[in-house]
Design a protein around this nucleic acid. Structure first.
Lengths: 260, 260
DNA sequence: CATGATTGTGCATGATGATGCACGATTATG
DNA sequence: CATAATCGTGCATCATCATGCACAATCATG
């Protein structure tokens, strides 16, 4: 079982990752009879292409539409909170803010200020649950069929309900963000809802963790031109930030993590 | 089946915690063939990320929604589960069942069978959250303004969305139930929604714990004549049951609690 | 056919991450 | 109170990683 053509080997690795299988550098090196360096280069290339995530010891598939979105809350909870806190500065008092699906926006639901007269809308079950625990924030739920993979309502009914709202600021939950491809999503219905959301919102804000920056997803939501503000993590690499800035994007950097 | 990649091991542990499963350090160490120190580090990292709580001997999952509803679920959880399980017999396969607001219906959301082709609707955030964690049940969310005291959508928008549904069976979450006054609610909007719900449903089922039986609430939802089935607790006093039966009500008694 | 460019590969090196062990502190249990 | 299990921390060790460099294979072009 030795594949001689380099690109074929890379395809074989990509196929496993697409199947949801985590791969180990050493195991692949043995299997394909090449050094670990070659495998590492393959994995780096695949990660750069957005088809996997690089981890210590190998690579794991990018949980695209994959499994419960609650699983995405586990990693980077502090980072997401920091992002959400930084985004608050972009929300004027008294405005109507919409929290899209996405784990980052659940964090946002928890840190929204209560005394600035906000009205909050969401189509995310998790965000609604977080908001419902707070007795102080008037909240509107956009209903419709629930997509269990997404954890919220994204179907035609939801889009129709959305069309009756005049949103000031929307926090767009995006799966990936790059200068070339704009914001992307892994699910078609989710992407369609997000497009409608951007269209109904006066101001669009995207919160991106480092892992999302530069990635690619099958469904394009909106170009960079349609995004008013991008909030990046505090430890976001400078070159990625400058790339965004050079493309004419308003970039806000999250504050250093404050423990609470 | 030993996972070689550290981050994959952490993900596996996190997945179990998300599933609500408590984990033990020693068991995980044996299972993954690493020392307990490594597991402890993993658990500490997960706890720092907020996805679990560290306890002596391992870790336990963090309460998912953190809803006040969850607090209500704690006491009488077994009773409510028993009520919900008994109500399942009243739901024909393939029907459209609606779960109203109320902690009992959250229990119902957790015990609904997955293989009988049900379609589920709800206006309760907590019930939707419970349903969304299950990948198998198609669910429709009725949106609208969220009443934080209720934990769901009960306003005009919700009633309008409800008017587009043809519901087979509704599990009516009622605050009180008595032969003289029928089903009652403490909140006006909640009661209005429930009235609309009963009107849109072919069959109305009420699940009542003993504490609710015979009580009175300011807002009358529906008379006993409008209720098709009443499910009472297993230890419901006989005289209360006979009173209901004499009034011409179909009474179903919950099964004795089965531990699982 | 000859030649230069491109690409892939392997190896060495310093840096980073993960692991296991030892030790003292803390907590459950009888 | 006594015992044993568990915990947290510091430290040594090993695995893995990223980078730079040299060499071979492939390919395009003259």
């Amino acid at each position: 079982m030795s594949i001689k053509i380099p690109s074929a080997r890379r395809d074989a690795i990509a196929a496993r990752l697409l199947a949801g299988e985590p791969v180990s550098s050493t195991a692949l090196a043995r299997e394909f009879s090449v050094s670990e360096d070659a495998i590492r280069r393959d994995l780096r290339a695949l990660a750069a292409a957005g088809s996997c995530r690089r981890v210590y010891g190998g690579a794991v598939p990018i949980l695209g539409g994959g499994l419960p979105m609650a699983a995405r809350m586990i990693d980077g909870g502090a980072e997401k909170r920091a992002l959400a806190s930084a985004a608050l500065a972009l929300i004027p008092p008294g405005s109507f803010v919409f929290l899209d699906n996405g784990s980052t926006n659940v964090a946002a639901a928890e840190v929204l200020p209560e005394d600035t007269g906000l009205l909050v809308g969401t189509n995310s079950i998790a965000a609604a649950a977080a908001l419902a625990t707070r007795q102080d924030l008037p909240t509107v739920m956009v209903g419709g069929g629930i997509d269990p993979a997404i954890g919220g309502c994204t179907d035609g009914t939801a889009i129709e309900a959305l069309s009756r709202l005049n949103i000031d600021v929307c926090l767009l939950g995006t799966c990936t963000l790059s200068v070339e491809d704009g914001a992307g999503a892994y699910d078609a219905a989710d992407a369609a809802f997000k497009r409608a959301l951007v269209a109904r919102s006066r101001c669009t804000v995207v919160l991106v963790s480092n892992a999302k920056l530069g990635g690619r997803a099958p469904h394009r939501i909106v170009d960079m031109a349609g995004i008013d503000h991008v909030v990046v993590a505090q430890d976001c690499p400078e070159d990625l930030i400058s790339t965004l800035v050079l493309a004419g994007t308003n970039v806000v950097r999250a504050l250093p993590p404050q423990d609470n």
